[in-house]
Design a protein around this nucleic acid. Sequence first.
DNA 1: CTGTTAGCGCATTCAT
DNA 2: ATGAATGCGCTAACAG
Lengths: 338, 338
Amino acid sequence: MKKASVTLHEVAAAAGVSIATVSRALNGKDRVSERTAEHVAQVAEQLGYRVNLIGRGLRAGTGATIGVVVPVISNPFYGELIHRLEDHLQRGGFDLVIADSHGDVDRERDRLRMLVERRVEGVFVVPSDAELSFDAVADTARRVPLVQLDRHVIDLPADFVGVDNGRGIELAVDHVLSRGARRVVLVSGNDVTSVGRERRAAFEATVRGRSLPQEENVFGEYLLEFGEEAARMLLERGPLPDAIVAGDDLVAAGVIAALKRAGKRVPVDVQVTGFDGTMLADVCEPRLTTVVQPFDDLAREATEALVRRMDEPDAPYVLSRLAPTLRVAESTTPAPPR
Amino acid sequence: MKKASVTLHEVAAAAGVSIATVSRALNGKDRVSERTAEHVAQVAEQLGYRVNLIGRGLRAGTGATIGVVVPVISNPFYGELIHRLEDHLQRGGFDLVIADSHGDVDRERDRLRMLVERRVEGVFVVPSDAELSFDAVADTARRVPLVQLDRHVIDLPADFVGVDNGRGIELAVDHVLSRGARRVVLVSGNDVTSVGRERRAAFEATVRGRSLPQEENVFGEYLLEFGEEAARMLLERGPLPDAIVAGDDLVAAGVIAALKRAGKRVPVDVQVTGFDGTMLADVCEPRLTTVVQPFDDLAREATEALVRRMDEPDAPYVLSRLAPTLRVAESTTPAPPR
DNA sequence: CTGTTAGCGCATTCAT
DNA sequence: ATGAATGCGCTAACAG
């Protein structure tokens, strides 16, 4: 059990051929006689040979690996996204190395550095800060094909694939309006992330565009706890608005929990919407009306963008915005849709 | 932007020293004059040099990498677990490669093979099938230090770290009994996984031990949908039991959702408990009383077991069972605890 | 303190 | 069709 692993040399020796022949036989790329090929394969199998991807990688100048850096792997949204990414990459024969930045810029820089040193062929990154992530992400993009996912760094000339946040917020607001709301409040992430900025800007624009009353919105982090805290704040502030548009499903879940604990009814007393379309939306009670991200399309698009960048490193960068959809559920619908 | 990356040679040339000196200067392991060290560092920085971990890995016989194979990365339970693992490994200077088996034995075999070929220094695996995963996991364990996590393969002589499922189920059952339940039904995962088997066995043993009436339990997969389905089945079957012990939080969430849609009240009409202690438990309404897994301890223990195995490959294998705790919330408590 | 050299495992070019 | 030789980038002996 302590034997160092079998190498081409040993297989070659055992099979009575040269190391080159073994390599050829096993990879099947080059011409080898049927007989030897079979023989070699058998010997290799019998010896329990396994290619050493490190050796191959060194020779090839790279392993077939893609890296991805996310803020929090335990967030269901990123879990889902990574799940899809892995799927698409697998098809291209790539393995995925995952790194968690803990939403910390220093750690993010560190993890990106690690991926570069690993000579991954491409990197996906969800930047943890719309501004402070600039240096690390820019530097990485200079060294390896890189695609920003979900969030992006302001003014960074690099590919990006994400959802159309403006459209998503608009869908949510217009929906609650169609359900009779007038006073609508946004409870969402702060300006640290591009997503937070975009959703806020879109919300304010929509409120103005629909001539709705200006409410005082609440901003914080994309956490369950923030949702609860924000809801408590709104309760203290006075009469509840007609609807609360939350920045994501997690926040929405927190909002609903706090509201109900305070004896308020959703959607009767106040409507609530989420954003992302994670499984959290289905676990909430009432189930959450939410803006659904097209996870699979995002992953596919991002993979394609990365491949494009690998093929043509100097092509002009592209910003992809995918359209979200609205999934209507009980949190905005008094009468359960049958 | 298309420049192949800078190598030690180039740095050496530019700095007017030998390649070995550069290596030493940069790694600081060996004695180099203050002056040259500084000079080299500066040149390297200026050229944008980054070690090539593939080269180093080949030389060292391994990269500082650990692999982990889980059934579904999008499941919050595994997200949380991976999060903690990454944390502990980081401290040891290890990077983590994640692979998703999709709960499929073939894919699992494939992913394990990839990790071996990558010459990772260790592997964590959550086997997708208590029996069918045997060959792939056993073969992998023969080649590299391996620790089974959460689930294990039956009769496989390999390290394992997981929660004490028996104790967890007992905690849940005794708790609902203390809340006045008599008729208790288990809705949990089937016998495909060791976890499913253990929770079922523990439940049946507890029911017998407490002289409770034997109910017909429901088994399926650890999915939200299964929880809903099971609840519908129970509703059709006749009068609801006093309590439903769910196999995990996801199933519990599904159960609660379906019950409430059918007009039943939790915990008044029926109590419900979960298992795992994921964020789902806090999002449910009412919040879920659940058996909490000690995520951080599990990750730490698993990491230690792996390191132990790396140091002493032939040591007798060890099965670690960590004690869960019960977190009581509204799903079993009529009067909200203040 | 620093330079020279060898070789980790592999794929490939060039002979044969 | 096969073998011999080369070098990917790096670190660790070994000299000096």
